[in-house]
Simulated assay, not measured.
Amino acid sequence: MNLSSLLPAIEPLDLRSCLVSYNGKLIIEHYRNHRTREEIAKVNSCTKSVVSALICIAMDKQLLPEASTAAALYFPQLAEDPDPRKKAITLEHLLTMSAGFNWTEFGGQNSFPRMTQTPNWIQFALEQPLSDEPGSRLEYNSGLSQMLSAILVQASGMTTAAFAERYLFQPLGISQYEWEHDPQGIHTGGFGLRLLPADMLKLGQLYLQQGEWNGRQLISQDLVQRSVYPAIAAESPRRGRYGWHWWVDSFTAASDSASPSAFDFYYALGFGGQTITVVPSLNIVAVVTNDRLKRGKPPADVFRQHIAPLLVQQ
C-alpha cells in the first residue's frame, strides 16, 4: 500500500477535501484551502448513514424494537391503507430502501423534489402507491429516510438532532454541525446535514472500530455488522448492494501474482461526490467532499478510481 502518488493525482479534480486514515492515524490530508478545513458543508445523502447509526443506537437502548417490526406501529395509516401489502412494510424495509413504494427519486416522477414541496413530507411518502412487494427490490427513496427520522422522534421523545448530539456527536467530539428539518420540525433523514470533513472521518472510524470509541461502545458490534451487511442488490447504473442506509461493494485489481488483489468496502454516499468509505480488511477510512460539479458530468468516483488502486499496490 503506497498512497504517495494520491495527492498529485487528485489535484486536478479540485476537491473540497480528501482525508485517509490508516489504523486510526491520518495519513492523507488534503483541503482546497483553510476555509474548507474549518467550515461545515453539506454531506447530502451521507446524512442517511448518520440516521442509520442513530437508529442502531436507539435499538441498542431498546427505544426501538427489532428491525422486523412493522412500520405501521409508528404510522397506523399503513395498516389502514386499501393496499394490504403496506401492512407488511417493516423497519428493515425502510432501512434497506425496499419498502416497495412507487418512487423515482430524481427524473421520471421526481418524487424527492415533489415531496419537499409539500406541507407534510411524511404524509406524501406514506400515500405513494406500492409498485413492488415489500422486501423484493431496492428503490432509492429519501421519503423512507424521513420516515426513519420521524420514528426516532416518536421512540426517543427527542428531536433527531438532539438524540444525535447526546449519543453520537458529543461522544465523537463533533460540535459543529447544522441540520435542516421538514415543515413539521423533523430533521431531514435523507439529506440536509452539514459537517466538517474531519468529523465525517470520525463516523467512518467508529464503524471501522465496530462501534467502539475511546473505550465506549456507542453502537453494538452486532448492529454495526448488520447495518453494513449487503442486504439487497442495486440495479444499474448503481453498483454493489445496499445495507441499512450504507452502500456495500468490492474492488478487484489485476496484480503481478497469480490471483487478483481485492477487498470489500462499504460507504456513505452523498450527491455531488461526498463519501465516507470504510475498508475493514485494510483498516482504512477515506473521506471525500466535493462542491464543484461540471455541468453534464457526474463527479469522479475518487475512491474507486484513485484511492483503491493504490491500496492494493505492494
Rank of each mutant, 00 (worst) to 15 (best):
R16I: 08
G270L: 05
G215I: 04
E127Y: 02
H34D: 14
R166P: 03
I174T: 08
L126D: 01
T160M: 15
L311M: 02
W121A: 09
F191R: 09
M115E: 08
L138C: 14
L15T: 07
V43P: 00
I186C: 12
Y242M: 09
G211F: 03
L195R: 08
G296N: 08
V287C: 03
S156W: 02
G211K: 02
D60E: 02
V43Y: 02
A99H: 03
L78N: 04
P113Y: 12
L63V: 03
A268W: 02
N23G: 14
L310I: 04
R194P: 00
K42L: 12
M115S: 07
L73F: 07
E178V: 03
P183V: 03
D83N: 10
A234Q: 13
F303W: 03
L203C: 07
F169V: 04
F251A: 15
Q77Y: 01
G272S: 07
E80V: 01
G185V: 01
G272E: 02
S259G: 09
V228S: 09
F191I: 05
S227C: 09
T90S: 15
S136P: 01
R292T: 12
S145C: 10
I10F: 07
Q305L: 14
F265I: 03
L95S: 03
V224Y: 01
S21K: 07
I151N: 09
G108L: 06
G100W: 08
V279G: 08
P76S: 09
S220Y: 00
L282G: 01
T252A: 13
L152M: 07
S131E: 11
K87R: 15
V20L: 06
G185R: 04
S250A: 14
L64R: 06
A233D: 14
L195K: 07
I122P: 01
F191S: 15
N120I: 02
S261I: 06
L193W: 00
I284H: 05
S49M: 06
E66T: 10
E212T: 11
G135Y: 01
R292L: 10
F169I: 05
S142G: 13
V278M: 01
E105P: 00
L7N: 10
V279L: 04
L94H: 06
S5V: 08
L7I: 15
A125M: 07
N141I: 01
G24K: 12
L138N: 12
N283V: 07
R238K: 15
S5M: 10
P8W: 04
L130R: 10
D291R: 11
E38V: 12
I10G: 06
E212K: 13
N2F: 02
Q154I: 07
A198Y: 02
Q313Y: 05
L196R: 06
G270W: 00
A258N: 11
Q154A: 14
G270R: 02
I219G: 03
K87S: 13
Q305Y: 03
L130H: 09
A234R: 15
L19T: 04
